[in-house]
Simulated scan of single mutants.
Amino acid sequence: MSGTHHADHPYKTCTEVTPLCPVSATTLGYYPSKGFNIFFAVGFGLAGLITFILGTWKRTWSYMAFLTAGCMLELAGYAARVPLHDNPWNKDAFETQICAIILAPTLICISIYLTLKHVCLSLNPGLSRVRPGRYPFIFVPLDVSCLLVQAIGGALAASAGYNNQTLLHSGNRAIIAGITLQVVVLLFFGTSSVDYYLRVRKWIRDPAADPHAVALWNDRKFRIFIYAVTIAFSGILIRCIYRIAEMAGGWGNPIMQDEPSFIVLEGFMVVIPCLILAIFSPGFLFPEMAARMSASKKQKKEKSEEKSPATTQHPGSTREQESDKV
C-alpha cells in the first residue's frame, strides 16, 4: 500500500505510485523503459554467453571469467529495472539495479587490463616501462579497490534509508570516490598503453626488429583485436565519467532523473564494449594470449597435483611463473 505524508519524510512508507506517492518523488523520477531494459538485459546475457563459450573453447580463462561475471551482473541489474516500469517504488528492484549496474563495469575493466600484459609479452617485453607480468598485479588490485569502495558506499546508502541522511550522504560520497578512482585507474592504463604503443611503433621500423613481432604487428586479426579493446576501453571510460556527474548531485538529482542520458551514457556505453569484447575474442584474434593463458592454467594444475614436499625449483623460476599467472 502507499504511504501517507509524514512531517520528516512524507514518502517514507510509499510502496506504489498513488496521488500521495507520485512517480516524480522516486529516486529515478520516471517509469524506466521496459523495452530498453529488456534489450540491455538480453544484450548482456548474449555477451556473457558468447564470452563463456568462446573463452572456455579457446581457454582464455581469466579474461573469460571476469568479462562473463561483469556481463551477468549487468544482466541482473537491467532485469531488476524491468519491474520498476510497473512500480518505480519497488525498493528491492531499485537497490538491486543500482548496486549491480554500478559495480559490474569494474569486473569488465579487469578483462581489458589483462590485455596489456599479453600484448607486451607478444611484441617486445623490453620496451615496456613495467615488467609485463606485473601489470595484472598493478591494475587488478587497484580495480578491486574501486569495487570495494563503491560496494561500501552502496551498502551505506542502502542501510541509511530515509532515516539517516548523514549515512546516506556518506554512502554517496564513497560511491563517487570509487568511480573517480576507477576513472584515474582507467586513465593510468590508457596512458601506459599509449606509451607502449608509441615505443613499439618506433621500434618496429628498425630493421633489427624481431620478425615474429613485425608479423604480429602487421597481422590484420591482431589489429582488429587492439581496435576492439580500444573501443571498449573508451566506452567504459565515458560511462565512468558520466557516473561521476550523475552521482555528484546526490540521489534524485536532474541527471539521475534523465532517462535518455542513462540509456546512452550508461546502457549503450557498457553493452557495446561487452558485445565487442565477446565477439572479437582473443581466442581467435590474438592466439598468443589464449595460448599463454591456457599454458598458465595447465602449469598451476600440474603444480597443485604435486605431492612430494621435496620438490625443488631453480632460482628465479618462481618469479617467472608469477608473471604468467593471469
Rank of each mutant, 00 (worst) to 15 (best):
I101V: 12
F188S: 00
Q165S: 10
R129C: 10
A291T: 15
D206Q: 01
F137W: 14
Y242A: 01
F94C: 02
F284E: 08
A160Y: 05
M269P: 09
A248R: 07
D143Q: 12
R173N: 15
V229P: 09
L156H: 03
G171I: 08
P207S: 09
W89L: 01
R81Y: 08
A295S: 15
T106F: 12
R173C: 04
E266A: 11
P273D: 12
G178H: 12
Q313D: 13
G250V: 13
S62N: 13
N90W: 02
F94D: 08
D206F: 05
V326K: 00
L181Q: 04
K221A: 08
I176S: 11
K117F: 04
K117A: 09
G55H: 09
H118A: 05
N163W: 01
K202R: 15
P309R: 06
A160M: 00
A228H: 14
K221Q: 11
I231W: 13
S323A: 07
I110E: 04
A80D: 10
R134S: 10
F222I: 01
A295H: 14
V194A: 11
A93V: 04
N87V: 03
R201L: 04
W251V: 02
K91W: 10
V194N: 04
L285P: 07
S33E: 07
A80L: 01
M64A: 12
F66I: 02
A79H: 02
P83S: 05
G29R: 04
N218A: 02
A290T: 10
V185Q: 10
Q150M: 06
C274R: 05
K34G: 07
V144F: 11
W203E: 05
V185P: 11
T60Y: 06
I102K: 07
S122N: 05
N164M: 05
E266L: 07
T312R: 15
M293W: 01
I276P: 11
A177D: 15
L277H: 02
L187G: 01
G252N: 12
P211I: 04
M289H: 06
C21N: 02
S159K: 14
G250D: 13
S296P: 00
